[in-house]
């Protein structure tokens, strides 16, 4: 068995020294090595998106990424978003809009959405469908997930708007 070697992963702004084997996936390293179990594995084959994390600003499937290949990348997982009890607007929107039922797909959807909205603050509903189409949800029929992405987009835009802008008022 090839020996484990120490890899340094930068996750959520912290540095983790994790012992991995060459054939360990990033999903394994995050869950087992870093203890960050918020990232889920639903299929292990690229078809559900439950394992989505953000690497250098873009979503990646951690089940199809080797842990060693993530070295040097700026990784973000679902655990990075909330500040204490204050949810990230995307998280808040998934809860408020009912975009999460059983919740197993949720970390993946949330990370995909966070990355989407960082690059495209005002996606149309059609564009949202496109962007989330690599994530599979068996519970919601996606309707409320799309609602959530729209709400989050609105709140994030509002938060970026000048302080006296009326849309800064929290919605709903």
């Amino acid at each position: 068995m090839p020996n484990k070697s120490l890899v340094t992963l930068r996750v959520n702004g912290a540095t983790y020294e994790v012992a991995v084997r060459p054939h360990d996936t990033l999903a394994q390293a995050l869950r087992e090595g870093c203890g960050l179990t918020g990232t889920k594995v639903g299929c292990d084959l690229g078809t559900c998106g439950c394992c989505t994390v953000i690497a250098d600003g873009r979503p990646v499937l951690s089940c199809l990424t080797l842990a060693l290949e993530a070295e040097g990348k700026d990784l973000r997982t679902i655990e990075s978003l909330a500040r204490g009890a204050e949810l990230h607007p995307v998280q808040e929107a998934f809860a408020t809009c009912g975009g999460s039922q059983c919740g197993y797909c949720t970390p993946g959807f949330v990370m995909t959405t966070v990355s989407l909205l960082e690059h495209e603050p005002s996606p149309s509903r059609e564009r949202i469908k496109d962007a989330i189409s690599g994530n599979l949800c068996r519970c919601t029929g996606y309707v409320k997930i799309i609602d959530a992405v729209e709400r989050a987009a609105g709140r994030l835009r509002a938060a970026r708007a000048p302080a006296d802008h009326p849309s800064l008022q929290p919605q709903g």
């Binding site: 690229g46 078809t47 998106g49 989505t52 873009r58 979503p59 990646v60 499937l61 199809l64 990424t65 995909t112 496109d130 962007a131 189409s133 690599g134 994530n135």
Partner: peptide
């Protein structure tokens, strides 16, 4: 746009 999924296309 119709290749695999947006997540797979990222890598």
């Amino acid at each position: 746009a119709r290749l695999a999924s947006p997540l797979i296309r990222e890598t």
